[in-house]
């Protein structure tokens, strides 16, 4: 096909488009959705029973704030990175918050090691934990994929890594808010393990799933040029 024919086809298919909101606004929309999901979960399940006592502990508070800050900054980074002309170093934005969050988990791990009770975790709680994990991460992932679909042809891996980190941090924040996971191993598995799993899944399948969503939600190429 000649390039002039491609231009003709594209011009024929040029319907008006709505410009994207600035990344800050789009990140705020996603965070509002996350807040809604978390709010609903808290209403349905209730906060963890020892929340008042935990909030007195600086390590817990710093860890929670670290997770929240990681989620907010990673979401902003992924929306910024999804624009073609954004510099790549936006990927570094959530790293300081991530460092704080991860280091507090490590710190809790060391101090709690001695006082950890081996039967601190019940099976029922683990299952409910898993439900919270899915209820938080699935809707947030779907929303993120749809909102970031236009990044599919540009830099899908960086965008989905940042997006995955935002989802993982938000999920971890929800878990810590709702479930009393005091055994250190469980904290590690649930918080870091799940966060790493979600982030890894996002970077492994982000490229393919972004493309899949983009092909379905964004069929704006004229028919003769697609495929």
């Amino acid at each position: 096909m000649k390039t002039s024919d491609v231009i003709d086809a594209l011009v024929d298919a040029a319907v008006p488009v709505r410009r994207l909101h600035p990344p800050l606004v789009r990140a705020a929309i996603w965070l509002a959705l996350a807040a809604t999901v978390l709010g609903l979960l808290c209403v349905a399940h209730g906060l963890r029973p020892d929340i008042a006592a935990r909030l007195q502990q600086p390590v817990f508070v710093v860890s929670m704030l670290g997770a929240l800050a990681t989620a907010v900054l990673a979401a902003l980074a992924s929306f910024k990175l999804s624009l073609p002309d954004a510099p790549r170093w936006w990927l570094l934005l959530p790293l300081p918050a991530l460092a704080v969050w991860v280091s507090t988990i490590g710190y809790g791990c060391l101090t709690d090691w001695v006082s950890m009770s081996p039967d601190g975790m019940r099976m029922g709680e683990a299952a409910r934990c898993f439900a919270t994990l899915l209820l938080t991460s699935v809707p947030l992932s779907i929303a993120m994929l749809i909102m970031l679909r236009h990044a599919a042809p540009l830099r899908p891996t960086a965008v989905s890594a940042a997006g995955g980190l935002a989802i993982a941090a938000m999920t971890s924040f929800a878990l810590a808010l709702i479930h009393d996971l005091d055994a250190t191993i469980m904290i590690l598995i649930w918080n870091l393990g799940m966060a790493a799993l979600i982030a890894a899944l996002a970077s492994a399948f982000g490229r393919t799933s972004l493309k899949w969503v983009a092909a379905r939600v964004m069929p704006s190429l004229p028919l003769q040029l697609s495929g």
């Binding site: 488009v17 540009l154 964004m218």
Partner: peptide, 27 residues
């Protein structure tokens, strides 16, 4: 050209057009 077409909603007219286009072309 087709990529420019399919993501033309990501262009913000208050920002310069050149870097936007060059970034897409390079990638």
């Amino acid at each position: 050209l087709m990529t420019v077409h399919s993501i033309r909603q990501t262009y913000d007219p208050t920002r310069p057009f050149g870097p936007w286009l060059v970034a897409i072309a390079h990638r």
